[in-house]
């Protein structure tokens, strides 16, 4: 599905988080949204699937304004993977993923629903832990379960809010590979809010760099991840190295930072 966003504005009790964001996202594209803490990445994702109601602006998916769609219709089109995994009420992995079928369920859950859940578990390669308690899993496994739940929704757009935060490097790579694979196989669109610039440059087709609730730069990783942009947006001096055909961001030091030497004892 194509997404078109125009002039999105959102504020939390008069503290404005989005100040006129416009984006065009193509089908079957991995888009990374990067930016410092508080730049509006999460808010943007939540406005796209109407978890939050933007005060101004429109979100169109395939030309349809999401304000004309019901919450259930949106849930069928977009899957959302939240940022932090809080301790859930005790439930098995299977039960958690089954919730992804909610938009399609009336009361009875059919054999087809069960099969969709198993398919999602298999895609994430976690079917062997299906009957385990979600809370007993590691952070990496939990993240996979949450992605599986979003997949069980059969969405055409995946919204992921920092899917690799708090994961070890192996799980980071696994999760990103899985997302990339899903996008390619199912021709869906993934919008990923992410802090890790190196992951973004490796896996994203395009990067949207945000600053203070606005889009600061858009384009291929090469175009967006420049020392100049990083300094302006993050306030960090960085060098960009090229390794094996992709970019690596090497942060050097914060701009205007005076390192404080311990005073000699007087």
């Amino acid at each position: 599905m194509k997404i078109k966003i125009r002039g999105l504005e959102f504020s939390y009790n008069s503290i404005s988080a989005l100040k006129g964001v416009s984006m065009d996202i193509n089908e079957a594209e991995v888009v990374a949204v990067v930016g410092p803490n508080g730049s509006g990445k999460s808010t943007l994702l939540k406005c796209i699937n109407r978890i939050l109601y933007p005060q101004r602006g429109v979100v169109l998916i395939d030309g349809r304004n999401i304000n004309d769609l019901s919450q259930v219709e949106i849930a069928k089109a977009m899957g959302y993977v939240p940022q932090s995994v809080r301790q859930l009420f005790p439930a098995t992995v299977f039960e958690v993923v089954l919730m992804g079928r909610k938009p399609y369920l009336t009361w009875k859950c059919s054999k087809g629903d069960i099969e969709k859940v198993i398919e999602a578990l298999k895609t994430l390669n976690i079917e062997d832990i299906a009957m385990r308690d979600f809370n007993a899993l590691s952070g990496g496994q939990q993240q996979k379960v949450l992605i599986a739940r979003a997949l069980a929704q059969e969405p055409e757009i995946l919204l992921l809010d920092e899917p690799t935060a708090n994961l070890d490097i192996k799980h980071q790579l696994e999760v990103m590979e899985i997302i990339k694979m899903i996008v390619e196989e199912r021709k869906i669109t993934a919008i990923i809010a992410i802090h890790d610039l190196n992951s973004a440059s490796k896996y994203a087709d395009r990067i949207f760099m945000m600053k203070d609730g606005k889009i600061f730069a858009v384009g291929s990783p090469k175009r967006v991840l420049t020392p100049n942009n990083i300094e302006k947006v993050y306030g960090v001096k960085a060098e960009i190295a090229e390794f094996d055909g992709r970019l690596c961001v090497i942060p050097i030091k914060p701009v205007n930072y005076v390192s404080s030497k311990p005073k000699p004892p007087t």
């Binding site: 939540k46 699937n49 109407r50 978890i51 019901s70 919450q71 259930v72 949106i74 849930a75 069928k76 977009m78 899957g79 959302y80 939240p82 809080r86 859930l88 009420f89 439930a91 039960e95 958690v96 919730m99 992804g100 909610k102 938009p103 369920l105 009361w107 929704q153 919204l159």
Partner: peptide, 19 residues
């Protein structure tokens, strides 16, 4: 079903699941 969803996820995720 709605209560199941709400128990197993926060309000935001519940909304993303159509509740």
């Amino acid at each position: 079903w709605d209560v199941n969803v709400m128990m197993l996820s926060g309000d935001e995720v519940a909304k993303s699941l159509g509740v």
